[in-house]
Computed example of a mutant assay.
Amino acid sequence: MRDDGKARLAILGPLKGRGAGSRVAGRFEQRSASREDDGWGSGHDFSDASGEALESGPDTVVTTERARSIISRNQSPDIGFSQSINPYRGCEHGCVYCFARPSHAYLDLSPGLDFETRLFAKTNAAELLRAELARPRYRCSPIALGVNTDAYQPLERRQRITRELLEVLAETRHPVHLITKNALVLRDLDLLAPMARDKLVQVSLSVTTLDNRLAARMEPRASAPHSRLKAIAGLHAAGVPVSVMVAPVIPAITDGELEAILGAAREAGAGAASYVLLRLPHELREIWREWLAQHYPERAAHVMSLVAQMRGGRDYDSAFGTRMRGEGPFAQLLASRFTRACRQLGFTRPPELDCSRFEPPRISAASPQGSLF
Rank of each mutant, 00 (worst) to 15 (best):
373 F>G: 08
189 L>K: 13
106 Y>F: 10
62 V>L: 04
251 P>A: 02
71 I>E: 08
223 S>F: 11
25 A>H: 03
281 P>L: 01
202 Q>S: 12
117 T>R: 06
71 I>C: 13
92 E>H: 00
307 V>S: 03
247 A>R: 00
249 V>D: 03
324 M>Y: 06
340 R>M: 03
291 W>T: 05
261 I>M: 12
79 I>S: 00
212 N>E: 03
225 P>W: 10
8 R>V: 03
263 G>C: 03
177 H>F: 13
221 R>D: 11
234 G>Y: 12
269 G>M: 00
12 L>Y: 07
128 L>P: 06
205 L>N: 00
244 V>W: 10
296 Y>H: 15
307 V>G: 01
259 E>F: 10
142 P>S: 04
210 L>M: 01
288 W>V: 11
108 D>Q: 15
60 T>S: 04
6 K>N: 04
244 V>K: 04
337 R>D: 13
261 I>W: 12
124 N>W: 09
200 L>V: 11
95 C>T: 12
274 S>Y: 12
66 R>E: 14
259 E>R: 15
144 A>F: 14
217 R>K: 12
28 F>M: 05
78 D>H: 09
345 L>V: 07
310 M>W: 15
278 L>N: 01
167 E>W: 07
26 G>W: 07
327 E>Y: 10
234 G>E: 14
156 E>V: 04
97 Y>V: 07
313 G>M: 10
235 L>N: 02
277 L>A: 13
130 R>Q: 15
194 P>I: 14
77 P>W: 06
79 I>V: 07
2 R>D: 09
330 F>D: 08
282 H>P: 01
